[in-house]
Design a protein around this nucleic acid. Sequence first.
DNA 1: ACATTGACCTGAGAGC
DNA 2: TGCTCTCAGGTCAATG
Length: 266
Amino acid sequence: MPELPDVEIFRRYFQATALHQEIEAVKDISTALLEGISRENLEKHLVGRSFRSVHRHGKYLFAKVEAEGWLVLHFGMSGFLQYYKNKEQAEEHIRLLMAFCNGFHLGYVSTRKLGRITWIADPKRFIAEQELGPDALAEQFDEHAFRSRLEHRRGSIKGLLMNQQALAGIGNIYSDEILYQAGIHPRRKAAELQVAEQQQLYHCLRTVLQTAIDCHVGEKGWPDDWLLPVRESGQACPRCSGKIQRLKVAGRNGYFCENHQSYESS
DNA sequence: ACATTGACCTGAGAGC
DNA sequence: TGCTCTCAGGTCAATG
């Protein structure tokens, strides 16, 4: 689930539900996911306090706790948040549970335990230490900034889009969608794209991510002419007469249209 | 410096 | 039904 659009939705969900409420208790902390902090210390930081704001950078969520520091959540492959009242409603595999004084709970769910939970003093410093690139939807991340990231790269464009140090937020499925809409083959070399292709790619990157967020908010699915609804081998391309194919790129299975994303591109 | 591979976890679905 | 195999929207350490 969690690439930039998903995490942005989690951020809004957190903001709409869990701010400004005193935390009565913290439970079910999975130590396997904790990094740089003990269960006891995390509890101490949270209990009796409340969240003041929530921010996002790439796939990371930062929740500010009054006068204390920041809870950092990363969702791995299978993470999400659940705000609920009654115990019977609780999802399985909650790895961090915060019980508020109003009787509600916020659960951080992660079936596969590939996410992480940490505690930091300053998000800016954390982002620098992790060497994360600019958030893919940040205002400062303009076309020029994007194009400069493509220089001196030896790998594929799909690999670059998924590289969190080059730019933060895009993963396997949204990189497929962006390349699909830009008409660029996932194995093209990042450094060899034509200027017009770079511009087109930047445009698609921004609109795909923003549109995906808007679709989530409207509780609509992805648009019909996107790749994602038919992202499967042998499916008909929604935009041309081609067929969807699977291809291993940068260690992941990617999908593309053999016809309008040919390797010899425009 | 950069890119690729396998390992880390758990569960779902396909095929027999 | 139950077994085995493959795959899953991520990242890190080890390797090329």
